[in-house]
Design a protein around this nucleic acid. Structure first.
Lengths: 336, 336
DNA sequence: CTGTTAGCGCGTTCAA
DNA sequence: TTGAACGCGCTAACAG
């Protein structure tokens, strides 16, 4: 075969395999003359070291994994973009795994990764994930691990998150100030801390404005169809809310669709606000008031921290829990 | 160390490594009794075979690569979703590489992949890619390869594409029938076949309706800012078009933004049509008439074909060039 | 500065 | 049915 490996190069150059290896790894204990000879031939033959051999030998894969619920979601694709930027710079490869909001799939993915395939991984858990033992056991197995956005506050796993409670408070207050008296909160999962933080910001704002009794929390499920039914019911009911806070982008899209269907005017009859990283949010009818998370930065931060762990640098205390600010972009969907 | 490998299992069970290996690989030349003993302990200790060792030994990685220009684009994230579905089913891992529309980056990515890291790869080239030698040399190196959407018709590399010329013809004709007499075409790159096919469909429709002289092709560059400038110039010029055909989603978003900025009314003053896989296209102001490509299916098809090649099945002639139909969804942005 | 040797963990001979 | 031995391609320790 014409497989080009160290042995082949060594043979053609009448050198020992180890010499060739050293020459290619910039070792300074090799004469510049042979180094050039080796490099020239390597280049000519298009030599690429076999990654499995060197991974096996060095016990590192130059690969990280990104485990996310879904990719058709601007938040996660922006995160991935940030991760990839850092990884490419570091000469690392990126494996992508989608859990599709399925806890069991998530568990088995982590299980498979506990074997050296990756040097580290970053994860945002599915909304059906209730416990974090699978993360803990990865960490105990010694795999560098970083979590982001959908995280667990009760572990020592480094986290990159946003100011969910504060921005949700601000968003809810914004609705109140624009005249809403009955605001619904669409929760994505009662298991996720970010969902609960967002809810708590919402509740706190209601209480501050003496509307604690008017709370209206709709717990959504992982089932899209069912959620849409719930929303339809909500908007068709007698006590229809005059404002709705969507804790994830998908819900905002759903609400828009249902309002179109039911002829409910946004913002006149219903004011809408939602977490969203849609670049087209400003172009919707009407433009959507959005809480924009710094997704790309989250990706960059998370992977930077991950690489620090991989490189065995000790993390500063402040690096174990990083909170990045989201932005509230006010647009027509929430204004009088 | 507590690393759990075949050696460890063998030791604890007083068996040879090879026996353990056989037991775990369902070999029938091992007593069912020992097989169970082995499996039990393996499960108990959470044994996961070292992928680098077995990849090295078997000369296959159980990994494929997806090389795409960008991920913050619904078309590509839907494709990735389709790929991941098939890969997960096959027990394969997916590496993701972003070229950011940079030919050189694309070349060096393929270069690095020419070494056994992946069992195959699928690619949609960047819009700055003019020649396809880097693909050819991958194929010559024996790496299973499939291209999709942004492909090269002059090679034998299997392709999954859509009916670009036909659907573009239809879209342009739709604009004509809705009264447009001066239709601009925003081309993403004069190097890409899909861009040229889309353009040809546009031109053909103009000619059919005796508007061949009114062609107005704007060649865009990989530079977003510059493209926006070009579009602004186009819409501010004396001979402002009354219709615009955006060959990619991003351009449609840009056009909407610029129209908002310049107070140009869609569709009254300008009718807009564009390739787009945005789920929110129907919610834009006004709802966007879109050419929707079957992105998820492209991902599934492309990876299915890739796995056929990997498994050394011979491809039917009809599998070497698969054309999937796009859909034209007519909405307000293009109607009187 | 270069060569020899050993071994990473696994799968696959060949022997018993 | 099991065990011993080898080698995938590479890096690193040790020798010269």
């Amino acid at each position: 075969m014409d497989t080009v490996n160290l042995k082949r190069l060594a043979k053609e150059l009448n050198l020992a395999i180890s010499t060739v290896s050293r020459a290619l790894s910039d070792s300074h204990e090799v004469s510049s003359e042979t180094r050039e000879r080796v490099r020239a031939l390597a280049k000519k033959l298009g030599f690429q070291p076999n990654p499995h051999a060197s991974s096996l030998r060095q016990n590192k894969s130059k690969t990280i994994a990104v485990v996310i619920p879904e990719i058709e979601n601007h938040f996660f694709s922006q995160v991935l973009n940030g991760v990839e930027a850092v990884a490419q710079e570091k000469g690392y490869h990126v494996l992508i795994y989608l859990t599709h909001e399925d806890y069991n799939r998530e568990k088995s993915i982590l299980q498979v990764l506990r074997n050296g395939r990756v040097d580290g991984l970053m994860i945002s858990v599915s909304n059906s994930t209730g416990n974090f033992e699978h993360l803990e056991s990865c960490r105990e197995a010694g795999i560098p691990l970083v979590s982001f956005d959908r995280i667990d506050e009760n572990t020592d796993i480094p986290k990159i998150i946003t100011d969910d409670a504060a921005i949700s408070f601000k968003a809810t207050e914004h609705l109140v100030k624009n005249g809403c008296r009955r605001i619904a909160f669409l929760s994505m999962s009662d298991r996720l801390s970010i969902s609960n933080l967002r809810k708590s910001g919402y509740l706190k704002a209601l209480e501050k404005h003496g509307m604690g009794k008017q709370q209206l929390v709709v717990e959504c499920s992982p089932d899209d169809k069912q959620n849409e039914q719930e929303m339809r019911k909500l908007l068709q009911g007698k006590q229809r809310p005059d404002g709705v806070f969507c804790s994830i982008e998908k819900f905002a899209i759903n609400i828009y669709e249902i309002c179109q269907e039911l002829n409910i005017a946004i913002p006149q009859q219903l004011k809408v606000i939602g977490f969203s990283n849609l670049p087209a949010a400003a172009l919707l009818a009407p433009p959507l008031t959005a809480i924009v998370q710094p997704a790309y930065e989250i990706g960059k931060e998370a992977s930077s921290i991950l690489f620090k762990i991989i490189e065995k640098k000790t993390l500063l205390h402040s690096e174990k829990r990083i909170v990045l600010p989201s932005k509230l972009i006010e647009r027509k969907s929430s204004r009088e």
